[in-house]
């Protein structure tokens, strides 16, 4: 009786959750990465629902039926009440199996999805095709981006804002982040001061920004759309105010935005430190004009920094 009810409720629960909840679970499906993180989440839900239902039902049963108010004979002690081989062995067996399966599944998802959008440190072991080549080229400071190739974006966090450098576009630095659709994006995340965390929610990307360390994360965009960037590691007083918005543009719109920003910013870019994977903070550093140095004010005010983002 109990187990039949449990089986039915679990199947129904799983179907309902998969069909009605699944499409809305985070982080959505703006990128391939987000989509597969969402798939993972939903798979875990499929296991969670029967477990929750089973234990809750059991507790409800206990409250309703195994209650002293219902009278009946006293429970009998002794070996039968202390141990039940079948129950114990199957409990341990089933939980072990589920756990091992989930660990295996998580590992598989992590590997095939090139780190699932998480920070993979300076030398990622699981990277998408072409990413390493694009990075190596970008490091020289004079590569350029062509449609279809991975785009390298450097995320520089500091108290309390993010700026973005585009090494394939002359290394200009912007407070806006725009990326092209249907493209592999290589994020190189670093910090100038304390630890921050670059969390692009809808992209399914999260990577800590450590000072002096290049933390790489990948995503593969699909269609156009917009996303929020929030700092997800406590970085001091204004941590709560450290966010901005970005866009996934069509490839040609992106190309236009990036090239025109590159041109508009050329006079500022030449005062920036040469593109590199990490920076030490300095008054004249890579901070997007946040700490302009003395009477040398090479940066435009933040409002006019970069070109206006096209609608999509």
């Amino acid at each position: 009786m109990f187990w039949t009810a449990w089986a039915i409720l679990s199947v129904v629960g799983d179907i309902v959750v998969w069909v009605f909840v699944g499409p809305h679970t985070p982080p959505g499906a703006l990128t391939e990465t987000a989509k597969s993180d969402q798939f993972d989440f939903n798979v875990l839900l499929m296991f969670a629902v029967p477990v929750l239902i089973g234990v809750w039902m059991w507790l409800a049963f206990a409250i309703r039926f195994w209650n002293v108010k219902r009278g009946g004979p006293d429970p009998v002690g002794g070996e039968a009440a202390r141990n039940n081989k079948v129950a114990q062995v199957s409990w341990i067996g089933i939980t072990s199996f589920v756990v091992l399966f989930l660990a295996g599944f998580g590992t598989w998802a992590l590997v095939v999805d090139h780190g699932s959008g998480g920070g993979e440190g300076p030398n990622p072991v699981w990277s998408p095709a072409g990413a390493v080549k694009a990075e190596t080229a970008a490091a020289t400071g004079n590569s350029s981006w062509k449609v279809g190739e991975p785009l390298v974006v450097q995320v520089i966090a500091q108290q309390w804002r993010f700026t973005y450098r585009y090494p394939q576009f002359g290394g200009f630095e912007s407070q806006q982040i725009n990326i092209p659709a249907h493209t592999t994006i290589v994020f190189n995340v670093t910090s100038l001061d304390v630890i921050h965390d670059f969390w692009a929610y809808q992209l399914g990307v999260k990577a800590d920004a450590n000072p002096g360390i290049n933390n790489v994360a990948y995503t593969e965009t699909k269609g156009t759309g917009s996303f929020v960037v929030r700092c997800a590691e406590l970085c001091g007083i204004w941590h709560g105010g450290m966010f901005n918005y970005g866009k996934v543009l069509s490839q040609s719109a992106f190309q236009n935005w990036a090239s025109s920003t590159e041109a508009a910013n050329a006079q500022n870019t030449k005062f920036l430190p040469a593109f590199s994977w990490t920076y030490y903070p300095s008054a004249n550093g890579a901070g997007g004009g946040y700490y302009p140095a003395g009477n040398l004010t090479p940066y435009s005010p933040s409002e006019t920094y970069g070109s206006a983002t096209p609608a999509s």
């Binding site: 993972d40 989440f41 296991f47 989930l102 998580g106 992590l110 998480g118 969390w199 990307v205 999260k206």
Partner: peptide, 14 residues
């Protein structure tokens, strides 16, 4: 268990 799954952790961490 959700938190310990690395791909899901990307969304829920922090």
């Amino acid at each position: 268990v959700f938190l310990s799954d690395v791909p899901v952790n990307v969304t829920v961490h922090g």
